[in-house]
Each structure stands twice: as structure tokens, then as C-alpha cells.
Design a protein around this nucleic acid. Structure first.
Lengths: 221, 221
DNA sequence: ATCGTAAGTCTGTATGACAAACATACGACG
DNA sequence: CGTCGTATGTTTGTCATACAGACTTACGAT
């Protein structure tokens, strides 16, 4: 968590985790479209790893709900129905609301500043938009928020949720048009955090997510 | 979800999932204690499966946070610190609050009745307590609640949370003494659901979880 | 007592194998 | 012409085996 003096030589995650990350990104950015079949041997060749490692990685993504298995028929990228999308945003709302409250309560001033800078970067990304850079900026923002909140269980769950939300966003293309409004909401949210106003932070956060949900769901059908 | 006419001959989950379930139960009931090392070969022999299947199962439990990996040193049952326990209960609070609200809104009368019966069974279990039967009764209760709520994402997350809560409960032995109080709370909760009073159901549910948290955390340290 | 080395353990990863489930194509038969 | 059955190929689910590298333990030398 706290990197201390960061004497680490190299923190290379094992092969499987690299595979997980790459697949997660491919799904989040829409390179693997919802419903696409995932054939093990193809993925092995594509990523240059053995079936052993690949399959373990797939189990992880499956546990996250990102991919779906039909017994004896293999895996495919999860298709998100309207109803599921609503459910995902409901969960995101309560978890992010919790995180907001905890951040307001627990975060250091350092973390507050980092969050502000992160919003700046997010704004910059909107100007020159790509799915990858947007996801990178967004996940930096959440890294800071969730770290500051100090609830690892919530963090882990939101990490999973966010991949699915990215997937939805790609489909609905809902981020571009909401850009300005979204940044404005985040800045207001930030001001509540800076004032250490838990309730206001909570309510602004919830509203932010619900607006995002509205935009994404509207595009869905 | 809805079993329709349930014409299925046999719904045998594949080997890996059986392994997952068995391990999950072993951890939930405290048969595998927090901190215990999990040596792959031992588990293979114990369960009569190959390393391949076992390792895939372990990945799943790892994604759930039930077991923890130290690089190159293997896996062990996650130790839950006081702080993590608090975090787990915070998450459980908001997610179960959501589920309560949704159940009050969406559940059928059938599901309401099933929930009532399930509370009866839970009460019976308290009389003749074993970790296994308690967990079985509790997970039946939640199956009904979560199904009625109709949010699969929330269901999946709470399933994970509950295993960890069981683990905590075993350690703290907090269920026995809270039995009567807990049942009373559930019955009041039920009455709110029957009245379709979302807000009251939400608030009673949250209070129930917070009481449970208090009991468990008090025993923790 | 400290250090260095050797032997053993376990993980991380790869390979090859095979039965069972499933899909596809093809041909036979009504 | 359409239906059915069979043959063929593909893919998953599972297993056995192998081996390098990280780590642990024991032992012996200094």
C-alpha cells in the first residue's frame, strides 16, 4: 500500500497476472466485444503462454463476471443486458458512495492533492480521447480515491465493477458527450472532500454515478 | 434463475466447481484456519483431483480474497485483520441495504413467504447449532433474499462477502449469543418487507448488519 | 556463533495426452 | 425434398509429467 522508500528492484507480476491484465484491458476497451467466443488455443497463441497459465487467468476473469462459461461449450465475453447494466450501476452507486464517505473521513491532505491533480489529468484526456488513455486516467483517479478510503474489500469490488462499466461505456460511447458535465461534477465532489463534508461528498458521489448511469443506459436501449 | 419446469436431469457442476465449493466451505467453517498454509500437493491428494483442476479452483478463491498468495511462497488462508473486518462489514452493510431495498420493491409474494419460512428454519438451527447447518440455513435465507432482489452483481458480491463473514463468525463465536436478538431483528425486517416499505426495510437491514458487526468485532480484539 | 553450502520442498509454467461434449458436413432413406 | 443418422473435426475438462527458480532447512566449516 504505502510504498515507503520504494527500494523495489522490479515488481514483475507473474505470467498469469500479466495475462489477466491484458485480457481485462482488451475487454474493457472493447477489443474483445461482448458475446465474442474465447477459444483457448487461439488465446494461447495470441499471448504466447501455455494453456495452463491461460486457463488460470480465465478463471479469474470468470470470477469477476467479465467472461461467461457455457458448460462444455467454452467461454465468451459476457453480454451485458439492460437489466444487468442497471444492477451494475446500482452496486457501483452504493460502493462508490461508501468509498466517498470513507475518503472524506480518512484521506490525508496528500491524497486530496493527488486526487485534484488526477482530475486535471482526466480533463486533459477528454481533449484527446482514446479508450486506453481514458481508462488509464480513470483508474488512476480511482486508485487514489480507493486507497484514501482505506477499505480493501470495497476497492477490490469496485475494481471489478469498473472494468464492466468501461465495457458498457465503450458500447454506449457515453463518455465523450458527458465529458464537461462529468468533470464539473468531480470538481464539486472534490470540494466536498476538501471540506471533509462526508454527507455532501456521499451525496455528490452518488449523484455523479447516477448521472453516468443515466447516460450509459440511455444509449443502451 | 427461474427454474421453469425444472426438467433438468442432473446439474452436476464440473470438477473444479466442486473443489471450489468444498474449499469454500472448509474455510467458512473454520476447518481451514486463517493463516494455514495451503500446499497444492496435499490438497490434490486430499480431494483426489489433479493439480490443474485444483489450481484453477484456487484462482477463484483467490479472486474472492479468501486465500492469499505470497509470490513463490504459495497460498494461505487469508488472515482477517481488525481493519479488514471493519471494511468487510462496511461493504456488507451497503450491499445488503441495497438488496433489502430491491427485495421490498421487486419480490413476489411467493418469495416473501419463502423468506418467512427460511427465517423459521434459521431459528430452528439456532437450537441445535453446528457451523455447517447454520451456514446452510443462512445461505438459504440469502439465496431467497438475493434472488428476490434481482440484482445478480450484488448477489455475486454478497456471496463472497458471506464466506468471509462466516469465517469471522467462527473465530469470534459471535452467532450463538446473538441468536435470539438476531432472529427478532430478522422478523422485524420481514415485516417491513411484507409492508413493501423500502426505507424501513433498508434501515432495519442496515441496523441488523451493524449489530452483527458490533458483536463480531467486539470478539475480535 | 556465523556463515556458506548442499539437499529438499514447493511453486510457476510448459507440454502432451485423451475422453466427452458439441458442431458440422454428408449421405441415406423415407 | 426434408428428416434422420453417421462420420469427422473441434474444443473443453481433466490428468500426468517435467523442470527451472525461489525458498527452507540442515549441516558442516571456519
Amino acid at each position: 500500500m504505502n510504498e515507503q522508500l520504494s527500494m523495489r528492484v522490479e515488481s514483475l507480476p507473474n505470467l498469469r497476472e500479466q495475462v489477466v491484465e491484458r485480457l481485462r484491458l482488451a475487454i474493457a476497451t472493447g477489443r474483445f466485444k461482448p458475446g465474442a467466443r474465447l477459444v483457448e488455443r487461439e488465446l494461447c497463441e495470441m499471448m504466447g503462454v501455455s494453456r495452463t497459465s491461460l486457463r488460470e487467468a480465465l478463471r479469474e476473469l470468470q470470477a469477476d463476471g467479465l467472461i461467461t462459461a457455457q458448460p462444455n461449450r467454452g467461454l465468451s465475453v459476457s453480454v451485458i443486458s439492460r437489466k444487468e447494466a442497471e444492477g451494475i450501476y446500482q452496486v457501483r452507486t452504493v460502493l462508490e458512495g461508501l468509498a466517498a464517505r470513507l475518503f472524506a473521513r480518512n484521506a490525508t491532505d496528500r491524497e486530496l492533492k493527488a486526487l485534484r491533480r488526477s482530475i486535471d489529468r482526466l480533463e486533459a484526456v477528454y481533449a484527446d480521447f482514446t479508450a486506453e488513455s481514458f481508462i488509464a486516467a480513470k483508474s488512476e483517479f480511482y486508485d487514489i480515491l480507493l486507497n484514501g478510503a482505506g477499505n480493501e474489500t470495497a476497492s477490490a469490488m469496485l475494481l471489478r465493477i469498473h472494468t464492466r462499466v468501461s465495457q458498457l461505456r465503450v458500447v454506449s460511447l457515453s463518455s465523450a458527450e458527458r465529458a464537461e458535465r462529468s468533470i464539473a461534477e468531480l470538481r464539486e465532489f472534490l470540494s466536498a472532500l476538501e471540506a471533509r463534508d462526508e454527507d455532501r461528498a456521499w451525496s455528490l458521489c452518488i449523484q455523479h454515478v447516477e448521472n453516468a448511469a443515466k447516460a450509459a443506459l440511455a444509449a443502451l436501449n
